[in-house]
Design a protein around this nucleic acid. Structure first.
Length: 552
RNA sequence: GGGCCGGUAGCUCAGUUUGGCAGAGCGUCUGGCUUUUAACCAGACGGUCGCGUGUUCAAAUCGCGCCCGGCCCGCCA
């Protein structure tokens, strides 16, 4: 088979290859290769630092293909490699603890990390002291992220695969055929010369990964290499080698990435792997060449996905432009996040917290289309029909979704009963709704409340119930407030109260805008707020009256 | 400089394979909800489909040339 474009979703398709959902296109290609069961879908990242939402591509894109294949009756294993034998090449400026809180490098033992530059992630102590190693720390967060979006991954440590011998045979193979390996890779990398050896041992003296192998001995019972611990280039800086000369087994080191990746394909039997566009023009061409012409295996079905941005900017933990799965799930339901990753992977997208309501609205629409509650054109309907069941745990028609911004409005009340009451009065909860549906619907209020807080947007108001905000009104305003209190005490409808606010202000010759401002001050300690009449009508009357009289 | 991917309404995006009326949601505006104060309802506005060019009865869609953005073409992953 000749070179294969990794842009699997961007190829021209025949009539019978078209699908509403991209994962079906990939699944077709996987099936057409008649793979052994279980079919293996792989992803992987290097646990080098904060695992942000962008890394979730690596989990979710594979997941949809895995699910589609399962639906078609296949047994599927979704493997995720933590490429944790990779060396730490530079100090991250920002880390995060297991709860996802960002932590500046200065707050941990930076010296300990600095001394470990060049060493495998799994050999570096966890700066937080909670896991077995640096690599383990971040792998744990990756696993937690997958769990949080309910994706069953089989997390495999690359270090473990070397140490337990799973990669030994293939490492031995590539060393045995290192002439061929050199020949193939030299077409992609200039530095590959006749001294190049596709194995980097770990220095037994200083623990760093070294690139200088001086001889290879595959004859003995345990194959080994001899090495000299030399300097390593890492970006613009150099990590010093210690000069030690020693011997390492094939379990005590790693293959360079260009060989390691295809080696993983072989050992794990990978049938499909999605990867970011950074791999599309470099790693993938060499990877498939190495797979076919060094290891003599067929590379997996590839799929390039576009990166997305956060608030229009690239993800960057050091710049603080980063968000973790755990953060996102405080703002919306897992199924909404899963929906985000069901969208076309070949389009670059922006994940905007600022406009998160749009994403949630989109999801709600998908759901409503699926249940035939609203009209949609053919394409959108076909997409909803196919994708919705894969996005939610279980399609249930009786479920209720409060519109996200409405949920944000309800978030201004801290009283759960009041929230439900208002949602019912506004017609968002039907009378015959089952209890679980009401509970689930109201759970969104907390999410939307967090969103309002986080973005400090126009919904970020909080009823100041416990104590009266500082205020300073003139006599006319105070009189007007007292009169309004009497009116409300007498009991009136929301729209009557709204009208009365105007009337009261006019009667006392108070500017209407200022009078509303006084109300917002008293209840929210803000200049602005929600539509005041209906709002006051919904909060318990006793409190409203007392607050208007500035008694508490 | 070369290769690849993307560019559709103010925003987020469908539609591009198979050429056939330019689409949705949000936002905006107007109106309604008996009264400028953000929840609800209705309607309207909104477009050089990145630009140019070719093919065609017909181009967002196909060809060619360009522009802009991103990725790769050292190393590493």
């Amino acid at each position: 088979m000749s070179d294969e474009s990794p842009y699997t979703l961007q190829r021209d398709l025949e009539e019978d290859e078209r699908h509403a959902f991209w994962a079906d296109i990939v699944a077709d290609r996987v099936e057409s290769r008649d793979p052994d069961e279980p079919i293996v879908v792989k992803g992987g990242i290097s646990p080098s630092g904060v695992p942000h939402l962008g890394n979730v591509n690596e989990i979710m894109r594979g997941y949809y293909v895995a699910e589609v294949l399962r639906e078609r009756g296949h047994e599927v294993r979704q493997v995720f490699t933590a490429d944790d034998r990779d060396p730490l090449r530079k100090l991250p400026r920002t880390l995060c603890d297991l709860e996802g809180n960002l932590v500046d490098l200065g707050e941990v033992d930076a010296g300990a990390l600095g001394r470990n530059l060049g060493a495998p992630y799994t050999d570096i102590p966890d700066p937080f002291g909670c896991c077995d190693s640096y690599g383990d720390h971040f792998s744990t967060i990756i696993q937690d992220s997958a769990d949080a979006v309910d994706v069953p991954i089989d997390l495999v440590s690359n270090t473990e695969m070397y140490e337990n011998g799973d990669l030994e045979e293939v490492t031995r193979f590539v060393l045995e055929h290192r002439d061929r390996a050199r020949e193939v890779l030299s077409a992609y990398q200039d530095k590959v010369d006749e001294d190049y050896v596709p194995f980097n041992p770990i220095c037994e003296e200083c623990g760093k990964i070294t690139e200088t192998v001086t001889s290879v001995d595959l004859e003995g019972e345990t194959p080994t290499v001899e090495y000299e611990c030399t300097d390593m280039d890492a970006g613009d800086q150099t990590i010093d080698g210690c000069g030690h000369e020693g011997t390492a087994t094939l379990r005590e080191g790693k293959m360079p990435w260009r060989f390691e990746w295809p080696a993983q394909w072989q050992v794990l039997g990978v049938d499909f792997e999605p990867f970011g566009k950074d791999h599309a023009e470099g790693s993938w061409p060499s990877g498939q060449d190495v797979a076919r012409n060094v290891f003599e295996i067929e590379p997996p079905v590839p799929m390039v996905y576009e990166w997305f941005t956060l608030e229009g900017q690239p993800f960057s933990s050091s710049e603080g432009n980063v968000i973790l799965v755990s953060d996102v799930l405080e703002l919306l339901e897992p199924e909404v996040l899963r929906y985000f990753f069901a969208k076309d992977p070949s389009k670059a997208r922006d994940f905007s917290i600022e406009r998160l309501d749009q994403l949630v609205d989109e999801f709600d629409r998908l759901e409503a289309i699926y249940f035939d509650e609203i009209e949609a054109d053919e394409d959108e309907a076909a997409f909803a029909e196919r994708v919705y069941p894969l996005v939610v745990e279980e399609p249930r028609e009786e479920r209720i979704r409060l519109p996200y911004t409405f949920a944000a409005v309800l978030g201004m009340f801290d009283d759960p009963d009041l929230r439900e009451d208002v949602a019912r009065k506004e017609g968002h909860i039907p009378d015959d709704a089952p209890e679980w549906a009401v509970e689930d619907a109201l759970a969104r209020v907390e999410k939307a409340r967090n969103w309002a807080r986080r973005t400090a947007n126009e919904f970020d108001y909080e009823l100041k119930r416990t104590e009266i905000p500082d205020h300073d009104f003139d006599a006319a305003t105070e009189d007007a407030l007292a009169e309004l209190a009497d009116f409300i005490e007498a009991g009136h409808e929301p729209d009557e109260i709204q009208g009365e606010i105007y009337e009261t202000a006019k009667r006392h010759d108070v500017d209407v805008g200022d009078f509303f401002g006084a109300g917002y001050r008293l209840f929210f300690d803000e200049d602005q707020g929600p539509k005041l009449g209906p709002f006051l009508a919904k909060v318990d009357r006793e409190f409203v009256v007392a607050r208007l009289r500035r008694e508490r």
